[in-house]
């Protein structure tokens, strides 16, 4: 092996190892892992199953809210949520039909919402504004109109 080749391979391995350590540290030590909740639900009985029998927003602490939301073609329920600036919002999500995506543009909130599974993701909203919430997983002819808003006041 040439010296240059050895240097290159050492740098490559070093860089890759650094990436692994950083992603690993963020995932396990800082709990920044991707949304991976593991709870099941009958996709045919979402409306009868708690907590999805009462979708909506609920205050659960000072500056802390829980949003229970269903996704279905081609809408979110509840729509047009409002929270005060500085609140932490815990989203609990499931789908009543096909696979949808839950993305809040301009934040890192991004999760797949699959029928039969309950997905969870949390976000703290500091900046006031009107955030676009949209479905980013193809779900049918009206996929591009599946959106709502979160207003942070």
């Amino acid at each position: 092996m040439h010296l240059d080749e050895k240097i290159w391979l050492t740098l490559s391995f070093g860089m890759i190892m650094a990436f692994m350590v950083i992603t690993g540290y963020q995932t396990f030590a800082l709990e920044m892992g991707p949304p991976s909740n593991n709870e099941l639900i009958d996709p045919q009985k979402v409306d009868e199953t708690a907590p999805f029998n009462e979708p909506g927003i609920k205050q659960i602490g000072e500056n802390e809210y829980e949003v229970v939301m269903t996704l279905q073609v081609f809408s979110f329920n509840p729509m047009d949520i409002e929270v005060p600036a500085g609140s932490t919002v815990h989203f609990t999500l499931t789908s009543k039909d096909v696979v949808h995506g839950f993305e809040i543009a301009g934040t890192n909130v991004n999760a797949m919402v699959m029928p039969g599974h309950i997905q969870k993701i949390t976000q703290k909203f500091d900046e006031p504004g009107k955030y676009l919430v949209l479905c980013n997983e193809y779900c049918g002819a009206g996929h591009q109109v599946m959106s709502t808003t979160i207003t942070v006041k």
Partner: peptide
């Protein structure tokens, strides 16, 4: 900026972000 893939044209209800 958040624009989704695999979506037809949409103004997302007049959203400023979109």
């Amino acid at each position: 900026l958040g624009a989704p893939r695999r979506s037809a044209f949409s103004d997302y209800g007049g959203s400023a972000q979109a």
